[in-house]
Design a protein around this nucleic acid. Sequence first.
RNA 1: GUGGAUGUAGCUCAGCUGGCUAGAGUACCAGGUUGUGAUCCUGGGUGUCGCGGGUUCGACUCCCGUCAUCCACCCCA
Length: 429
Amino acid sequence: MKIQSVKGTRDFYPPLMAVRNFIADGWKEASRRNGFEEYDGPIFEYLKMYQVKSGDEIVEQLFNFTDRGQRHLAIRPEITPTLARMVNQQINALPRPIKWFSVPRLCRAERPQKGRLREFFQWNIDIIGVDDVLADAEVIYTSIDYLRSLGLTSRDIKAKISSRKLLAGFLINLGIPEGQLDTIYPILDKKTKLPEAVFDEMLAKVISHKRTAAAIKEFMEFKDLSNISDYLLEVIRNSDEGTEAEEELERLLDLLETMGVGDYCVFDPGIVRGLAYYTGVVFEIHDAVGDLRAVCGGGRYDNLLKDFGGPAVSGTGMGMGDCVLEILLREKGLLKDGQIATLQIDNFVAYTDMELQKDAISIAAKLREKGEATDISYKSGSLKKQLKQASNAGAKKCIILSKEFIEDKKLIVKDMGTGEQELINADTF
RNA sequence: GUGGAUGUAGCUCAGCUGGCUAGAGUACCAGGUUGUGAUCCUGGGUGUCGCGGGUUCGACUCCCGUCAUCCACCCCA
């Protein structure tokens, strides 16, 4: 019976595994050089943990099951709730600030499409316990730092930055009841993703006042804080919250400039994020020219720990999936199939006669004991074939046992880079 | 859940308005005077033409159904 792979999953054959490691290793290096510590949690959790934030409809979008003890469990669709749980459990023992990262394998039961699969990897970084926007700047900087290290320039990608607080202050001053904000955010989040007419229709359903709707659209299209119209500025500054958010954003952009990534960053009030739990700075990094979905997204969530039964400690973080990233890197020519070696050995041991096999095995074993990556031919076929195998394995040297070994206990050591070879005494090994 | 496209060798694909034993490139295996990596040459098909029905003397080809994949919606933590 032939069984195929499950929809939305990937088989990581060695060349693809090399790509996956290339991405994950880069994430880990970027995390460490920016001062983040690695953590991980279980791959499944109680289902209700994912319902806290997002309600019951989320259940249809994740893989859930009941174990033999009748526990309702779910394979993790994200790691942030796990992070919140773990931090809450030891909140009084952990030194602040908490700067943690993880590269979890996640599953979501959504319909697969370009840049979105049912099983994927996502780099998460979070800073918990720092109210200062410096923490938001650090998160954005670390994200850019990684992408930049791959060769993506400020012409390739842009970090679009806004603030939920700014938006909230603006909307409230326009006369929108605070309780309605959570319904409006997901709609505004779609502004750039939908045709204008469709968006207008959706917005009209929640905002009947035409001038208010127009003001919201106008606000979301501004690209420069210093160039915003007097009327909108007045609306923003008409509240402490709006004024505070404006100052925070200005400081954030200034910090990013100081960090040397100012040219990657733009203010974009069109960035809202669909999630309810964001409370401050929000951002997404996009392909500057293409129409791929966001490479990563994140923001500040001041109530997350509290929502998971912990204290009111603030956090800010970011998630970056591997699928869109890989597509982007391939489009930019920064990642090519077969470009990353799946095998890198130091020595390959070849022999021209079966009577030499035992000695060859012994020499290979000694090299391995010394810590050198060594492979050996399993049969004494033509030397041509064995050298080809050595070459394919990326061997730096090929050690050949032949008549010189039988006669004088000498080995041929061939440098696979230069092609030069020398005779050495076998007892050197 | 909705719509569109596509299913032929491990991979990329060709195969016309139905007609001989189903093909190419690539990959892989073997060999090219039993001692040298590339290229080249020779040989090897590794296949339930997604699956099931129907039409027909005859189906990879046409029709119906079904399954799968991809793309776009819905959704997106």
